[in-house]
């Protein structure tokens, strides 16, 4: 240990949260776990720890990744640190009845096993209060359908990083139409080779450039859904 190591427990709340943002940025898993435990010990609710210390810290990481200041390895290290913090918080969040915003089924499409971006999106959605059902990689239409049937999500998320697997998203969307369930679910798509135009062409509801946009877009669709519903009730 270096001499000038900061003793996390000596910091007041604001300084500790600030330090956790920095530790998350540097991908320091143990420090994040420690910080989470300290804040919980100071009677912070799990939800407050999650949003103010972890999600906010990861938002900064995401911004610097978008701007080309951080690269994939650094983002993965930060994500691992956040994951470690979330592992502590997850059971407590359930226990304390943290707000549940909506539900998303997400997966990397058939033929593709790139999953870093998809995992990041899933993690940030979970951090934002979504229930996320992650189907993993190489997900075919049957698996998507089965999960939609079982979990009745508000949103479907599909990820593709290969030019050759992007078109499969259209296969899934067309099948949703055939089954008459397309209108019940908002479809968000993402992955580096995609763009707005492609999303429109395949009939998705939105293309999301990164995890932050994915969270905002997902929240937006949930809000719209509620408005529609209350509009219909009126």
């Amino acid at each position: 240990m270096a001499q000038d190591d900061i003793i996390l427990a000596d910091l007041d709340d604001a300084a500790l949260v600030q330090q956790m943002h920095e530790d998350l940025y540097d991908g320091l898993k143990e420090e994040i776990e420690q910080g989470v435990m300290i804040l919980l010990g100071r009677t912070w609710t799990p939800y407050k720890v999650l949003t103010e210390a972890l999600v906010e810290g990861m938002r900064i990481v995401g911004e610097d990744f978008r701007d080309g200041i951080l690269f994939v390895p650094e983002v993965l290290m930060s994500a691992n640190a956040m994951k470690a913090g979330m592992k502590i918080l997850r059971p407590l969040l359930v226990e304390t009845g943290a707000p549940r915003v909506g539900k998303m089924v997400i997966g990397t499409v058939k033929g593709d096993i790139h999953d870093i971006g998809k995992n990041l999106v899933a993690m940030m959605l979970e951090g934002a209060g979504f229930e996320v059902v992650d189907l993993g990689i190489n997900t075919d239409v049957d698996k998507f359908l089965k999960a939609i049937d079982e979990h009745q999500p508000d949103l479907l998320g599909m990820s593709a990083l290969l030019t050759t697997t992007m078109p499969y998203m259209k296969v899934v969307i067309e099948t949703l139409k055939e089954k008459g369930i397309r209108d019940k679910i908002s479809v968000l798509v993402g992955g580096a080779p995609l763009n707005e135009e492609f999303a429109r062409a395949i009939g998705a509801d939105a293309y999301c450039r990164d995890a932050a946009v994915a969270v905002e877009t997902a929240k937006d669709f949930i809000k719209r859904k509620h408005n529609q519903r209350s509009g219909a009730d009126a």
Partner: peptide, 18 residues
């Protein structure tokens, strides 16, 4: 390029499905 020299623990994040 993938940072495996600095962070060998990332091996699984990249290659666990391979």
């Amino acid at each position: 390029g993938l940072g495996l020299d600095r962070h060998p623990e990332l091996r699984d994040a990249y290659f666990q499905n391979y």
